[in-house]
């Protein structure tokens, strides 16, 4: 349990961003996630709200903030679908919490670690999503490993490109 809690290095390495960034980046992620599949069709192998959740959770190193942001983004994602609200919410809540907890203990500036973390957390999110959908709710859902792996890979690549871009907005104390 102690591995999931964080309190050691966050006081010195916590990142801060302007309030506008906290508001606009998740909104842009949601809008693009809703709009881009129209352009890309079946090749929309990414989950931008998840990438944003991971970024802020890693950067802020605060599990509560990561949990709340992941939950909120997941719920909004659910609200745009016809499915029950809370499926993505739970998945991203878990992802936000874990990302923030892990962020305290490892060097998140390293690109390889960022890529691997985003990839693994994407897979975890998909697994939680499928678990809730099929096991917890007992609903019918067909899915494929290849699709989920492709999505995780897409998220990792996007994280590699977007994280340095978002780093430019951080403020120094």
């Amino acid at each position: 349990m102690s591995a999931l809690t964080a309190n050691t290095r966050r006081a010195v390495e916590v990142r801060r961003y302007p309030v506008l960034v906290y508001a606009l980046v998740p909104l842009v992620a949601l809008v693009l996630q809703a709009w881009l599949p129209r352009v890309l069709g079946n090749y929309a192998w990414f989950d931008l709200p998840l990438v944003v959740t991971v970024y802020f959770a890693l950067g802020r190193r605060n599990p509560i903030e990561g949990t709340l942001m992941g939950g909120a983004l997941g719920i909004f994602e659910d609200a745009l679908t016809q499915h029950a609200i809370g499926i993505n919410g739970i998945a991203k809540t878990v992802v936000g919490f874990l990302a923030a907890s892990v962020g305290v203990r490892i060097d998140v500036e390293n690109h390889t670690i960022r890529l691997m973390l985003t990839f693994l957390l994407s897979l975890l999110s998909s697994a939680v999503y499928v678990f809730i959908f099929r096991i917890l709710l007992g609903l019918a859902l067909e899915w494929s490993w290849i699709g989920e792996l492709s999505k995780a890979l897409g998220n990792a690549v996007i994280a590699l490109l977007v994280f340095p871009l978002l780093d430019r907005f951080k403020t120094t104390d």
Partner: peptide, 9 residues
């Protein structure tokens, strides 16, 4: 004008 953004939806 937009989509759900999810492959499952």
């Amino acid at each position: 004008i937009g989509s759900s953004g999810s492959m499952q939806s």
